[in-house]
Design a binder for these strands. Structure first.
Length: 423
RNA sequence: GUGGCUGUAGCUCAAUCGGUCAGAGCGCCGGACUGUGGCUCCGGAGGUUGCGGGUUCGAUUCCCGUCAGCCACCCCA
């Protein structure tokens, strides 16, 4: 009987884990650089936390079960409800604006495909308590700086920014869309770019089968490619300000206004954005926006919020496409080799002394030919091998071999153990 | 959950019309090299051809089912 990981779940072998950790390191660096504090919450939450906001149908997409206490629980599919709950608890005492980030592992039960698994890690950055567009610009800038820190420029990654308020105003004021229809229409518009004409059916449904208004909105959708007219409307003032802030920051080259970006989630209320690879081969790297009503709905505290989620899967694919197979960095600095078994005590003493100094040391776990030991040392990527044999021991020394060049030097064991620099 | 495509050693792949076709390269282990690695040469381990049925004298090859992967839908945290 052999086992493999469940569908959509990943085993993290050392090379893959190294790549993940690099992503995590950059996430933490950038978030910290922006003055964000890290938080975390439980991976398991009451099912109601999600059904309340998103409706019963989302249960189909959750890992749920009943625990031994009879509670309906779910593995968290997203971090925002947890954040809302946590912030609501301490909203009165927390100095606004709140800048928090988290790197949760999230779960979703659905058919996996490329860039979309049943489990992933996601950087969440949110600013809570500030409604102005500089807050939006701040989180967008942070998202861009993550991909910049990973070595991507405007030629590889782009940000598309939009604002639902602009769309909503035109839809209601000029195209006859009624307030209750708005969420459905926005969802249909979000699909328009991907699905094209096929999305028109959803649009019609959202408008109660009203052919005339459907036609009007469809024509509107077809014109969204050109952002200029909408960007000039009064409702676009926050978006213009946000884009201006990003330009002033120096990140303007990454940014383009594109009203075709709507985002699928119902709770977005203002500026929405996404990062994507410039070639458009992958799924969105990151998606986010403003959700000013969510905290009130979930936590009973009325605070404006803006934030994003950036998953490790698509980002990892982007890095892999550029860097090729994960290399994995050396785990060993110095390999201590012995000529014979009688050299072992000296080798162990030296190895331990080096480890005490924080140097990463490995040695062969059984007596082997020196050639074998050096082979292993090279395979490990160690920079140096230290060879101890009878003649060295007699002189109180060891041979230090630089594995890249083959250069060797005899160094006293005392000096090696206490201060020798393996440069 | 629905539909399409795919499934051979750890990895990348090969195997004429169903008939010694179960192989290669890389990787791994060992030897040449009993005090010096990366190269080279030699050898070895590793596969019930995803799994289960069926057709056939005979199936990696054809059919059905199932599981898994990829793609699209759904959904996009």
């Amino acid at each position: 009987m052999s086992f493999v990981a469940l569908p959509g779940f990943r085993d993290a072998f050392p090379d893959a884990l190294a790549r993940r950790r690099r992503i995590f390191d950059v996430w933490r660096q950038v978030a910290t650089r922006y003055g964000f504090e890290e938080y975390d919450g439980p991976p398991l939450e009451p099912l109601e936390l999600y059904t309340q906001k998103s409706g019963e149908e989302i249960v189909e997409q959750l890992y749920t079960f009943t625990d031994k206490g009879g509670r309906s629980v779910a593995l968290r599919p997203e971090m925002t409800p947890t954040l809302a709950r946590m912030v609501a608890q301490r909203a009165a005492q927390l100095r606004k604006p709140i800048r928090w980030f988290s790197i949760p592992q999230l779960f979703r039960y659905e058919r996996q495909q490329r860039g979309r698994l049943r489990e992933h890690f996601q950087l969440n950055m949110d600013i809570i308590g500030e409604a102005g567009p500089l807050a939006d610009a701040e989180v967008i800038a942070a998202a861009v700086d993550v991909v910049r820190a990973l070595g991507f420029g405007p030629g590889e990654v782009r940000v598309r920014v939009s604002d639902r308020r602009v769309l909503a105003e035109l839809l209601t004021d000029e195209l006859g869309v009624r307030e209750p229809e708005l969420p459905g229409v926005l969802t249909a518009l979000d699909k328009y770019e991907r699905a094209g004409a096929a999305a028109q059916a959803g649009l019609g449904a959202a408008l109660g089968g009203d052919a005339a208004r459907t036609e009007g909105v469809a024509r509107f959708a077809a014109r969204l490619r050109d952002p200029a007219p909408l960007l000039a409307t009064p409702a676009a003032a926050p978006l213009r300000a946000c884009v201006g802030h990003l330009a002033a920051t120096g990140l303007g080259a990454f940014v383009e206004v594109d009203f075709r970006v709507v985002r699928g989630l119902a709770y977005y209320t203002g500026i929405v954005f996404e990062l994507f690879d410039a070639k458009r081969e992958l799924r969105a790297i990151c998606g986010g926006g403003r959700y000013d009503n969510l905290l009130k709905d979930v936590g009973g505290v009325d605070l404006p919020c803006v934030g994003f989620g950036m998953g490790d899967v698509v980002l990892g694919e982007l890095i892999a496409a550029r860097d090729g197979p994960a290399a994995g960095s050396p785990a060993v600095d110095v390999f201590v080799a012995v000529v014979g078994a009688e050299d072992r005590p000296s080798a162990l003493a030296l190895a331990h002394a080096l480890r005490e100094r924080g140097i990463r040391v490995e040695f062969a776990l059984r007596t082997q030919a020196l050639g074998k030991q050096l082979e292993l040392a090279a395979a490990r990527g160690a920079r140096h091998a230290v060879v101890i044999g009878p003649s060295e021991r007699e002189a109180g020394e060891a041979v230090v071999r630089a594995l890249e060049t083959g250069a060797e030097a005899r160094v006293s064991l005392e000096h090696l153990a206490t201060e020798y620099g393996f440069a």
